[in-house]
């Protein structure tokens, strides 16, 4: 399966691989996943992991594995659009121990540049649980604003709308 690889100064965004499973499992079986659909038992987590790959196959876009340059998995960031969702999302999951170093914002900007460039998205949202203050702070660092009028997939979620491609300008859009 052809998944594009994106590079940033400190990170590589590549297709999820079976070797990322232990880190994914540890996240989704821990309390850390409480605002992103977890915690789950290991089987449910594996099924979601498989769905991450299937998402790429169905849509041609999806969530990348974010790794340090030595291939250490630090999270998943990218595009998420299951069938019933009102809009295409830019999402992020950062494993325990890799927060607070600006990795998520670096990866999310690379993902957004891909969405607005090769994928030709004209807008993007991030759905964030109202209690997930760290994630809301990240959305704000990415220039997102709360869009109270937008539809959301879950009543507990708030919709944060990303700046449009023209708001960002060519330096933040991948060619």
């Amino acid at each position: 399966m052809m998944i594009p690889t994106l590079q940033t100064d400190r990170l590589t965004l590549r297709g999820p691989e079976a070797r990322d499973w232990p880190a994914f499992r540890d996240f989704f079986t821990s309390a850390r996943s409480i605002h992103t659909g977890g915690p789950k038992d290991p089987k449910a987590a594996w099924i979601l992991f498989a769905a991450e790959l299937g998402h790429w196959q169905i849509h041609g876009f999806g969530m990348w594995s974010v790794t340090l340059k030595d291939d250490t998995s630090i999270g998943l960031v990218g595009c998420w659009y299951p069938d019933h969702w009102p809009e295409k999302e830019i999402g992020w999951l950062i494993w325990d121990g890799y927060e607070g170093q600006g990795y998520a914002v670096e990866a999310a900007k690379a993902a957004r540049a891909h969405c607005y460039g090769p994928l030709n998205w004209t807008t993007a949202v991030s759905y964030i649980h109202r209690d997930n203050t760290r994630s809301i702070a990240l959305a704000e660092r990415l220039g997102c604003t709360h869009d109270a009028a937008a539809a959301h997939p879950d009543p507990e979620d708030m919709v944060y709308r990303h700046p449009s491609p023209s708001d960002l300008g060519p330096s933040e859009i991948r060619t």
Binding site: W21, F49, A50, A51, E52, L53, G54, H55, Q57, I58
Partner: peptide
Amino acid sequence: AILCGQWHL
């Protein structure tokens, strides 16, 4: 998505 993803994993 799961049916597709299992092939990849």
